[in-house]
Structure formats: C-alpha cells, structure tokens
Design a protein around this nucleic acid. Structure first.
Length: 287
DNA sequence: CATTACCTGCAA
DNA sequence: TTGCAGGTAATG
C-alpha cells in the first residue's frame, strides 16, 4: 500500500514528533517473522535508552537512526501503518510493535496483513549494504541525463521497470500507472522503444506525479494513514488508477479508461492517450 | 519472464 | 465463496 509519497509523508510526521526523544520501552512483537534479523529481546535491549537522532526515508523504507549508530528500518508492505499515539491510549488491533518514548508518546506499527518488516542494524555499513543491494536511486533526485543512462542499461516492459525497486526506489503499482498516464506511455511499451522525447516525458511525469502526491500527503484508498492517523488527499486526484469505465481526464480525450493486467498487477490505462504501439506506428496503421 | 507464497479484510 | 488489494522474495 504505501509507496514513496505515503512513506515520505509518514517520515516527516515521525521526524516532527520523535527527533531527540529517548526510547523507554519496546514491546508487543506478537508475530516474530516481522523482525527477520532480531528478536523482541534484541530490539528492546538495543533500543531502550537510545535517542532518536534521525528519521529518513529511502524508497519505501523508513529509517530510524538511534544514538550509537543503531538503525531501525521499517517496511510497511501492503497494509502497514506507523502511527503515533499517547501512551494512555490502548494498543489498537493488529499492532505488532510498540516503541514508547520519554515524553508520553508511543510509535505503533499496525499491520493487519503482517507483511510488514522491521530490521535492526548496528553500524552505518550494515544499513547501507542492506539498502544498496535492494534499491536504485531516488526518483525525485534523478536528473534527466541520469534517467537516460539508467534506461540504456535496461530492457523489458516499462511498467515492470518502474515497479523494480533496483531501477528506481519507491514507485509502486498505483504511482506507476499514474506516471505512465501522465507521460502518455503504455505500460507494455518496451524500454528500448522509447524515443528521446518519450524519455523526457517519463522523467517529467515521475517528478510531477510523485511530488504533487507528497504535497497532498499521499493516497488513502483503504488503509493508509500518516503518522498522526490522518488520511492523505491524493485519492481525490487520481487520473487512471482504479478508474475503469470512467472517462480519461484529458480534456481533448475523454475516452474510457480500461483495466488490464501487466506484470501480474492490475493496470489502468487510457488506450487513446497511451497507445500500445508508439505514436508513429499508430498513425500508419490507422490510415 | 511468470507463478507462488506470505496474510487479512472486504466487496461482489 | 471467490477474487482482489497500494509489496517483495523465492522459486520454476
């Protein structure tokens, strides 16, 4: 569920509340598989007494930096949320980790589907190795020329590529569809077939779609809420995702959006704005 | 490349 | 009851 804009919004909320706070207890790890490289004991022993020095996002991971070079790394997968509550409030259903702080606030990792993961790393090197072997560059920090270089080294379908976290970190199914609609590119288009102009549109669409979604504090379709427990508003501005049968929002278009499956994921496209063959080919076959 | 597994909740 | 869900790792 949470993709880059949702994780970024959450990280900002956590940063505001937690920087400088000291951890006083860690508990409720009722589903041990959520912490593949630590036990509740290790987490508690390591974290309690340490202070939050940094909160960062990398791809879809939130990285909580503790004093003494320890890092808690959280991934929410499909249904997870990281929510701040005061310790007088009861722990909600499906909460699988709680971290309590010295000022009466508590960070709860809530995840009905239990796909989420919590990792503990000691030392900057261990953290960097973990992240670098999973993640490509940050899409919002990439220049046009750098995107071109990355694309040159890849092949296959555009949508599969956008979903590949080692290509760019943080784009998921929803934003992949929104980006491809914005760029007027069909998800099945092969990377190799892109013209320079199309690569430019792709770069622009990545920047625009992700940054406006961050401004709107993310997309809340069913589960996602930010660190304060509040939904985002980007669900009110989706152009294609989940909108089968509705008209394409491009004024000059207005044709019907269809749902297909690409890379084993539900995929929404405007067949008119996003022709499966490039523009040149379409012109030829329609005359 | 595609398929399956991991989990639960919800809507059709 | 079935199918579907914003993710990723493991396995043909």
């Amino acid at each position: 569920m949470p993709e880059l804009p949702e994780v970024e919004t959450t990280a900002r909320g956590l940063r505001e509340r937690l920087l400088g706070r000291t951890i006083v207890s860690v508990g409720s790890l009722d589903w041990p598989r959520m912490a593949p490289n630590a036990t509740l004991d290790t987490l508690a022993t390591t974290a309690v007494g340490r202070t939050i020095e940094s909160i960062a996002r990398r791809g879809k991971y939130v990285i909580v930096g503790l004093s003494g070079e320890a890092y808690l790394v959280l991934h929410r997968k499909m249904s997870g949320n990281l929510v701040l509550r005061t310790t007088d409030l009861p722990v909600a259903a499906h909460t699988h980790l709680t971290v309590a702080f010295d000022d009466g606030w508590r960070l709860d990792f809530v995840d009905p589907r239990k796909f989420g993961r919590i990792y503990l790393f000691l030392g900057r090197d261990a953290l960097d190795i973990f992240l670098d072997e999973r993640l490509g560059p940050e899409p919002l920090e990439i220049e046009r020329t750098e995107l071109d270089r990355l694309l040159e080294r890849r092949r296959g379908r555009l949508k599969s590529l956008l979903l590949d976290q080692t290509f760019l970190a943080g784009i998921g199914n929803l934003y992949a569809d929104e980006i491809l609609w914005e760029a007027r590119l069909h998800p099945q288009r092969s990377v190799e077939s892109l013209s320079a102009r199309e690569r430019g549109r792709l770069h622009e669409a990545i920047q625009h779609v992700l940054s406006t979604a961050i401004e709107r504090r993310g997309t809340s379709l069913s589960d996602y809420v930010d660190a304060e427990g509040e939904p985002g508003t980007n669900q009110n501005y989706l152009q294609v995702y989940g909108r089968a049968g509705l008209p394409c929002p491009r004024e000059e278009c207005g044709n019907t959006i269809v749902r297909t499956v690409v890379a084993q994921r539900g995929t929404w496209v405007c067949p008119t704005c996003q022709p499966i063959a490039g523009r040149r080919r379409l012109v030829r076959t329609t005359r």
